[in-house]
Nucleic acid binder design. Structure first.
Lengths: 351, 351
DNA sequence: TTGTAGGCGTTATCAA
DNA sequence: TTGATAACGCCTACAA
């Protein structure tokens, strides 16, 4: 058999002695069909190995049939290594697959600001999910335009303040608050906080949670205890120097993600600090690495996988969670906030 | 602006005072065009915000414009967590993006054996890359059929013995041999090998490398030292019991991937073994976790990212590495084997 | 250098 | 319950 043997609907129609329209009806299970005809057509189609062209179908329907997923550009590529992208993508992918939608992965180019609107006008996607968003003027404008045009899209794991985009996020204020409260319960009072850049709502929300926890415990906020990394292990490693310096004034470290937490641990270890002298540690994301760490790292679990499923379901035609029409009344009625959960391990247990 | 404002080529043609064909020629930079006309058309297109429909174009060309990537099904999803999928996908994605190809992610359904051939006949993809392949009768048959049909496809990180598929793989025999030789150089003689299931050529090749290294050093093979896990951390954890039992007869552990190596370490630790008493360790993949482990884990680095790029370039029209026509002469002329590299860290250094 | 017109394989609307 | 028959938006000979 060669590529050239493309069986078309026409041949099926002829051999089955019906019109092409009927073949379509049978294969799409649309419209009333006499059972007899149905069987005959199906038989012939089967026998001829006929498979409808998705390309033609989509074209005729003016639907690409694709759910686009915009991946952020990350220098040094190796993008997916980030635990949460992997998880979210899995969630999205499984949901899309179950709905017969194809997933189109859109890799952002280095400098280029993506033209979301064109993506739709080119009919490359019917809807799309934006991963790794961050506060950026061009980005917000592009998304606003998209919304004005009434395109279905969903931002994941980021909140654009003042906008009313469809967003699927986790409650990082609360996640953070619980983490820090836990450290306080363990007797810690001088809690260093290694946060990420504030272009991510993730970071600003974690800071909020941190502050709330301190306030609840009547602990005074000391801005010297707040460090900024960039969510990489390396930045954690670098922060470890500062932390070691202030170690007699720090009894716990809360990091905005596991990679940084592990980087700090690694740094302390490399600088000769014994595990017994470690401050208490809590990370964030509850990635696989947290469990394997020494000591096992307490961490805030985020339901990335479920967030992916939810985001996808908002963009799937006929779905329950489908985003409502575009009359966005007031604030942000379509922002979804999933809960996090603190997983306590040895790293944060005192005495 | 509303979704309904779809500017068609027709309008551009009218406003520019040319035929639709000319608009096409201008936008596709095909055929001779008077500079004057070109500019005028471009201006109008720009002004009207006209964007050609990729959907229609692909349809007219009978090309989907998509490079399909088949993702293996993994129970409990969380598929991408596996380091190497992430890396390979990044490589593929970047290459595809640079070539104007869209990446279609195809998630395998639980039990279902994927019908590769239909994928092409449906015109959902022009070519495809298969990730996470393993020895399986149905799978091989499906791929053979694909090859007979002359479809362009490429298998990654797996070798189908006796076939002549286009494959991009790493030299795991050599990677493994080097790793074990290194352990032997460190003075180890009783080297346990925690391998993965032999449905993966990865596993069987690593076993080969292990055997070669032993032979080169005149060390007798002891099948009791070879354990089988399933590449998960958990299976490493379980294997740690056996390893602890035989510890007076084992001075090193070579694991077929980092996750299992870390699982073994974790298990030993949980069972009370001090790091000083650990056997020497070497893992495989050189994932991020290896560097963060305690002790830092020696590991075999595999160029997954580059493998992804290479696989993609084999399927990109006009590419240098494009797979040759379908006259596959003899053995397997189109299998590519990239080199690995041993990264030595503290876990395998003796004395 | 440009216009004309047929074709791509469906879907979907109207009649019958 | 079925058959004709327009779209769908673009590409591409072929003609001019």
């Amino acid at each position: 058999m060669e590529v050239s043997d493309i069986v078309s609907r026409k041949e099926v129609a002829e051999l089955a002695g019906v019109s092409e329209a009927t073949v379509s009806r049978v294969l799409n299970a649309t419209g009333p069909i006499k059972e007899d005809t149905r069987k005959r057509v199906l038989d012939v189609a089967n026998q001829l190995g006929y498979v409808p062209s998705a390309l033609a179908r989509n074209f005729a329907r003016s639907k690409s049939g694709h759910l686009g997923v915009v991946m952020p550009y990350v220098p040094k590529a190796h993008l997916f290594s980030a635990y949460f992208f992997s998880e979210m993508l899995s969630g999205i992918g499984n949901k899309a697959r179950d709905s017969g939608l194809d997933l189109l992965l859109l890799f952002r180019k280095p400098g280029e600001r993506i033209d979301y609107s064109s993506l739709f006008r080119q009919q490359r996607v019917d809807s799309c999910i934006i991963l790794g968003a961050k506060d950026d003027h061009d980005e917000v404008e592009a998304l606003r335009k998209l919304q004005e045009e009434g395109r279905p899209f969903c931002v994941m794991n980021h909140h654009f303040e003042g906008q009313s985009f469809c967003e699927v996020d986790a409650d990082h204020v609360e996640g953070s608050r619980v983490a820090v409260s836990h450290l306080i319960e363990q007797g810690c009072k001088r809690i260093a906080f290694l946060n990420g850049p504030d272009i991510y709502s993730n970071s600003t929300e974690r800071l909020k949670g941190y502050l709330i926890a301190l306030q609840e415990a009547d602990i005074e906020y000391d801005h010297e205890l707040v460090l900024e990394g960039n969510y990489s292990r390396r930045s954690g490693l670098e922060a470890s120097a500062t932390i070691l310096d202030k170690l007699d004034n720090i009894d716990a470290v809360f990091a905005a993600n596991d990679r940084m937490a592990l980087g700090v641990m690694q740094g302390l270890r490399e600088r000769g600090l014994a595990v017994e002298q470690f401050p208490a540690f809590v990370g964030y994301d509850d990635s696989d690495a947290a469990e394997m760490a020494v000591p096992p790292l307490s961490s805030v679990r985020v339901p990335f996988y479920e967030m992916g499923e939810l985001a996808a379901s908002k963009l799937i035609p006929g779905s329950q969670d489908l985003i409502p029409a575009l009359e966005l009344t007031g604030s942000d009625p379509i922002r979804e906030l999933l809960s996090t959960a603190l997983i306590v391990r040895a790293s944060s247990i005192r005495q």
